[in-house]
Design a protein around this nucleic acid. Structure first.
Lengths: 198, 198
DNA sequence: GTCTATATAAGGATAGAC
DNA sequence: GTCTATCCTTATATAGAC
């Protein structure tokens, strides 16, 4: 499984994109000015345009690079015959938790600011999200057919899975109470116990 | 003050506030213009200022009226000796689900746009939210002491409870697949099964 | 690649007529 | 209470010097 890590050989554009993710998360896309971003980067606003085409382009890159990462995990899982459906669902949940822990800026922007994408990117993004939900539903439906899990409707369970991890946003502000590992184990156990066949 | 009433016995200000919640939800607080809001209400932008003091004031009213509603439920639950801790947690979860189903505009604005509150309202709001989390944790801790629930750390469980219901935002766009009642029962069962003592 | 200067548009909010 | 007109600030993005 891929590890999450920071790229220390960032290009100038990647540095700007990371700063943008941080600002879009904190202030929101609309309320973030190019002057704010320039200040973070350490240049004047006009200089940013030697590296990027527009503010909108920054949002596109953050949202799609994040979304594509999750699609890529599903691509692998769907081809893996060594895991049960329940194990696959757990792997998806752990993947989401780990990304929320490691990349809260990217996750918050992708979740909360993607609505500011311009067409045709907005439609593409929303279609990909719907497809992503359906693919997870299909994994759960397969598990129900095989008797590996039960007690829940797949659509409801997917909504729960994708949403419950958003609370990690608040955990980031008060990390001292519980470690990332303990948080992950608690959430996985809680979710899976509500899904397991008994 | 003149009380211009419309269909639902709303004051003019309440009508404006509802329109603001809808727009803040769809476009975000920062990207919503007073001219947008005026168009929704059916007047020119300048006319809004006979009913409200500022755009910021509208956000304050939406966020605090929503947050106070949830605090009020806890006030009652804490005084209720007829319910177990597990029943109280279930009541809290059902309350959140029902509000997400019935008032998605208010819930989304309170969750996603409250960061645009100005001081001192922002600090007040965040302090109230922290207190709300702690009060639910306390109910869970009481349940653990009494052996009514187990298997999870209260902080992690509260994060899960408050976050998992946010998926209802997406359910609103595709209601046909599952009824509000079925959604509620699925989510309650899923969450409670992961919490119950066995 | 970065700067200063600026074009052009839109933002929240107010003044004063009616 | 609502309107028209407008103030003042800020926004994204570009032009052209260095």
């Amino acid at each position: 499984m891929a590890r999450i890590q920071n790229n220390k050989n960032e290009t100038r554009k990647e540095f700007i994109t990371s700063a943008a993710a941080r600002l879009f998360r904190e202030k929101g896309f609309s309320a973030t000015g190019m002057r704010d971003l320039a200040g973070e980067v350490g240049v004047e606003a006009a200089s940013l345009y030697n590296h990027i085409r527009s503010k909108a382009e920054l949002l596109q890159e953050i949202c799609f690079r994040t979304a594509n990462q999750f699609s890529a995990q599903l691509n692998e899982l769907e081809l893996d015959n060594s895991q049960t459906s329940l194990q696959k669902v757990e792997a998806i949940l752990r993947h989401h938790i780990q990304w929320w822990v490691a990349k809260p800026d990217d996750m918050l922007v992708t979740n909360n600011e993607s609505k500011y994408l311009q067409e045709p990117y907005l439609s593409t993004f929303m279609n990909e999200r719907r497809l992503y939900v359906r693919r997870i539903e299909a994994i759960m439906e397969d598990g129900i057919r095989k008797g590996q899990l039960s007690g829940i409707q797949p659509y409801s369970a997917v909504l729960t899975l994708l949403s419950m991890v958003r609370g990690i946003e608040f955990w980031h502000r008060t990390k001292k109470n519980i470690s990332a590992e303990a948080l992950e184990e608690n959430m996985v156990k809680h979710f899976i116990d509500g899904l397991r066949q008994r």
